[in-house]
Amino acid sequence: MSAPVPWPSGTKPAPGYVILEHLARTGWLDVYDAWSEERDCRCVIKVVRPDHRGERRLGERLLREGRWLRDFSHPHLVRGYETLKSPEPLVVLETLTGETLSHLVHRMRRRPAATDVALLGVQMCSAVHYLHGRGLLHLDLKPANVVVDRGHAKVLDLSLARPPGPAPAGLGTCCYLAPEQARGGPLTAATDVWGIGITLFETASGEEPVACGASQAATDSHDHDTGDQYWQLEEAAPPIGTRRRLPLALAAAIDTCLRADPSSRPTVAALACALKTALPP
């Protein structure tokens, strides 16, 4: 059975909002370019897909993310405008300029400069530090969840965010999971440090540490699936130096993020300091 078609242009999902274009569809969400009549500007609307609207937990998850983004204020986090419970749960976010890192990395003919990689890492550390200060782990840091515009990065998607502690095995995006996420161990701030490190690895080298199979790459990032085999549990991440030459301090910072043992990874603060050494004074 085919999935329902997205809303067409001109649909009014809630008073004051008009759909301009369907942007993306995930395993359980539709994302739209929309117009806010109150703000007289474009915005982004996230709504549970029509074929999943009967699943109460998904609507609650979406509204929880919207409330966090509406209440949080940080230059490297996407901003939330509003959450609406009816006529159906939806979240209104700011429209970002620029492009996702996943698109940017594969579009560029040359690898980013080492200083750009380090600056990206410092900005991600800043956003993650802010989230951790509010008792939340992001748990889905990856190039597709970072938008960059002229050197300014913003982290997206708090739909998996939760406090430190136990979590189901495989919660997140298969190729980017920390080993403890893959096996279902306790999750800590070190789990997000892995997420920063693997994002920097792919940004710097243009490829993931280990190529994921098609089944893993296609798995939706918001539903755990313990049937998958995770490379993180089978082998160590290769040193970034095997893919690209970088300044020693920057290469070491990335490599230490991807240590299998969470206790041997740097703290967010220590990682930010290490990355800053690769930046001009």
Rank of each mutant, 00 (worst) to 15 (best):
Val18Phe: 04
Glu99Leu: 03
Pro266Ile: 01
Val117Thr: 09
Leu233Gly: 05
Tyr176Asn: 10
Gln181Cys: 01
Leu93Cys: 00
Ile240Asn: 05
Leu141Lys: 08
Glu55Asp: 07
Pro239Ser: 14
Val193Gln: 13
Cys273Asn: 12
Ala34Asn: 09
Asp220Asn: 06
Gly241Asp: 12
Gln232Phe: 00
Tyr32Ala: 08
Arg49Cys: 10
Pro4Ser: 13
His132Lys: 06
Gly10Thr: 12
Glu234Phe: 00
Pro247Ala: 03
Thr199Leu: 06
Arg150Asp: 15
Asp220Ser: 04
Glu94Phe: 01
Tyr32Gln: 13
Glu21Asp: 08
Val210Gln: 13
Thr26Tyr: 06
Ala214Glu: 08
Arg259Thr: 10
Pro164Trp: 11
Leu84Cys: 02
Met1Cys: 12
Glu234Trp: 02
Val78Ala: 13
Ala237Lys: 05
Thr256Lys: 04
Ser9Phe: 06
Arg67Ser: 07
Gly27His: 10
Trp35Leu: 04
Val47Met: 14
Ser159Cys: 13
Leu58Met: 01
Trp231Asn: 00
Ala24Pro: 04
Ala217Lys: 13
Asp140Met: 08
Gly10Pro: 10
Val147Asp: 05
Gln232Tyr: 00
Pro50His: 01
His138Arg: 02
Val5Trp: 04
Trp28Glu: 08
Ala167Glu: 02
Arg56Phe: 04
Gly241Pro: 00
Pro15Val: 03
Pro143Asn: 10
Ala34Pro: 07
Leu131Asn: 06
Ala34Gln: 11
Leu69Pro: 05
Leu90Pro: 14
Arg49Ser: 15
Pro238Glu: 12
Val122Asp: 01
Ala269Glu: 06
Val122Phe: 00
Leu69Ile: 14
His103Val: 08
Ile19Lys: 02
Glu94Val: 03
Leu20Asn: 02
Ala144Tyr: 09
Gly241Glu: 08
Lys276Val: 00
Ala237Ile: 08
Pro143Leu: 11
Gly172Arg: 14
Gly165Trp: 01
Thr191Lys: 01
Thr26Phe: 02
Val146His: 11
Gly121Phe: 13
Cys125Tyr: 00
Asp149Thr: 05
Gly151Ala: 06
